[in-house]
């Protein structure tokens, strides 16, 4: 009865050493899954702007990548400002040191004076790779100084937001940043100066409930998550499944809180146009 002895598999000899070596040389990340439409995308097809060719979702960028895409002239401000540990929170300083080492950043926002086309501007870029872009005391301080310097130098402010919200490890001190930054925004506003927000994925929590929603103009990247409460909390509250486009930029635009959605490749041009329209008139 050899019929029943027939094997349903074939036996492969162990991979030769050379093959194993070649396998180890295949780099990771050649294919990336779009977090929005879930298509697998070959990394080259994302292009220089790192945009999903299927749905236009902009992959998360580092602050440096953002700066490279927007400006050729950037003079950073307050680079030495770094997170404090006001609550002496267990493990926070170690984690901070690790994240600083890994990202090369001192805090979750990079600020400075930039030139977009012909126009000087105070520019801030938040980076989700640093504690999920959360709002620590030093983050708030850098953004506050961005507005203060912009007010003193009569510059417009452009801020690209990306944040999971408050920095839990800094507790109430994180909450106070919302009020502190808002005061600086109010002073900038009272001086008649322009403030443009660009909401990028994700902008949530205390950042949404303060400076991300205080712009004269509020732009957003396609499909960026924009909201106050976290989706898990909202789902728990309503006890119902949330619509698939809940808190996405397109929905937030529909409900009236975003001026315009701008695909990433057009962002620099759009910002230059807006700056041009808001240049002070000669003699002002």
């Amino acid at each position: 009865m050899r019929l029943f002895n027939k094997r349903h598999y074939i036996h492969l000899p162990a991979a030769p050493a050379e093959l194993k070596q070649r396998q180890s040389q295949v780099p990771d990340g050649l294919w990336q899954r779009c977090p929005y439409c879930h298509e697998s995308v070959y990394y080259r097809d994302l292009g220089a702007f790192k945009v999903c060719p299927n749905c236009q979702y902009g992959f998360r960028l580092t602050a440096q990548q953002r700066l490279d895409q927007l400006t050729h002239q950037f003079q950073p401000w307050d680079t030495g400002l770094t997170a404090q540990d006001p609550l002496h929170f267990p493990g926070y300083q170690t984690k901070l040191a690790q994240v600083q080492h890994k990202t090369g950043l001192q805090e979750s926002v990079v600020t400075g004076k930039a030139r977009l086309g012909h126009y000087p501007v105070a520019l801030g870029v938040m980076d989700t790779h640093f504690f999920m872009g959360s709002l620590g005391s030093a983050t708030g301080e850098k953004i506050t100084r961005l507005f203060e310097k912009a007010t003193a130098q009569r510059l417009p402010v452009i801020l690209l937001t990306a944040s999971g919200g408050a920095r839990m490890q800094e507790g109430i001190h994180s909450l106070m940043q919302m009020a502190k930054v808002s005061q600086a925004v109010a002073a900038h506003h009272a001086a008649g100066l322009l403030y443009i927000v660009v909401l990028t994925d994700p902008t949530t929590g205390g950042v949404t409930a303060s400076f991300a929603m205080e712009g004269d103009l509020i732009l957003a990247e396609p499909h960026a998550l924009v909201g106050f409460a976290g989706q898990r909390v909202v789902a728990q509250t309503t006890q119902q499944p949330l619509p698939s486009d809940f808190q996405r930029a397109e929905t937030v635009l529909q409900t009236g809180f975003i001026d315009r959605i701008v695909p990433r490749p057009q962002l620099a041009q759009t910002l230059r146009q807006l700056l041009a329209w808001h240049q002070p008139k000669v003699g002002e």
Partner: peptide, 26 residues
Amino acid sequence: GAYPGQSAEEQGQGAAIAADLLKASQ
């Protein structure tokens, strides 16, 4: 805390709080 419901999000919970923060400072 502020109500974390779907309708509250759609009516702009973040924007509503932000407007209060801006106003209170002035």
